[in-house]
C-alpha cells in the first residue's frame, strides 16, 4: 500500500505560526521593559493621591531616595541606616551632577517616602539635602484610581 511508506517519514509540524507568535511576544516584552526603574524600591508603600501627575519633562539630574517607615533609606541596593548618614551619598551625587554640567540648584531630589513614615523624618531628610544646597524636591505619590 502507498500510505505505509509515508508513515515512516519524520512527521514535522509547521513551526512558522508558533515562531511568529513568540517573536511578537518577545517584541512586546522588550518594548515594555523599563530598566530606568531600578532605583525605585518596591518595599515602599507610597501614599496615594488623585492630583499628582508624572512630570512633563525629566529633570536634568535626579537623586531618588526611598525613605522607609522606620526612617532608614534605600538608595538603589544600598540600605542606609539613618538620615544622619546620608551626606556622603548626596555629596557624591552632587559631584556627579556638577561634572555632567548640571548646577546643584537644578538637581531634583525625588523623595519616595512610605505612607506610614514620620513627616518629621521627611523634613529632616529635606533639611539634610538643603544643607548641601539642594533646593528642588519632588514628593512621589502613587496615582489613586477610582
Amino acid at each position: 500500500m502507498r500510505f505505509r511508506r509515508k508513515r515512516n517519514e519524520i512527521l514535522e509540524g509547521d513551526l512558522t505560526p508558533m515562531i511568529d507568535m513568540t517573536f511578537q511576544l518577545i517584541a512586546f516584552f522588550m518594548l515594555v521593559i523599563n530598566f530606568s526603574e531600578v532605583e525605585l524600591s518596591e518595599e515602599i508603600n507610597l501614599p496615594m493621591s488623585e492630583l499628582a501627575r508624572p512630570p512633563e519633562e525629566a529633570p536634568p539630574f535626579k537623586i531618588t531616595l526611598n525613605l522607609k517607615e522606620d526612617g532608614s533609606i534605600k538608595y538603589y541596593d544600598q540600605l542606609i541606616a539613618g538620615i544622619d548618614v546620608i551626606k556622603p551619598i548626596l555629596v557624591r551625587e552632587i559631584r556627579q551632577a556638577n561634572s555632567d554640567g548640571v548646577a546643584t540648584s537644578d538637581v531634583v531630589v525625588i523623595i519616595r517616602a512610605d505612607m506610614d513614615a514620620r513627616t518629621g523624618d521627611v523634613q529632616r531628610l529635606m533639611n539634610k539635602c538643603k544643607a548641601e544646597q539642594l533646593e528642588n524636591f519632588s514628593l512621589r505619590v502613587i496615582e489613586r484610581l477610582r
Partner: peptide, 15 residues
C-alpha cells in the same frame, strides 16, 4: 523581568 507598575506622580516643593 516584566513589572506591572502603577503611574507615579510628583508634588514639587521648592525650598
Amino acid at each position: 523581568t516584566y513589572k506591572v507598575t502603577t503611574m507615579e506622580g510628583d508634588y514639587n516643593i521648592r525650598m
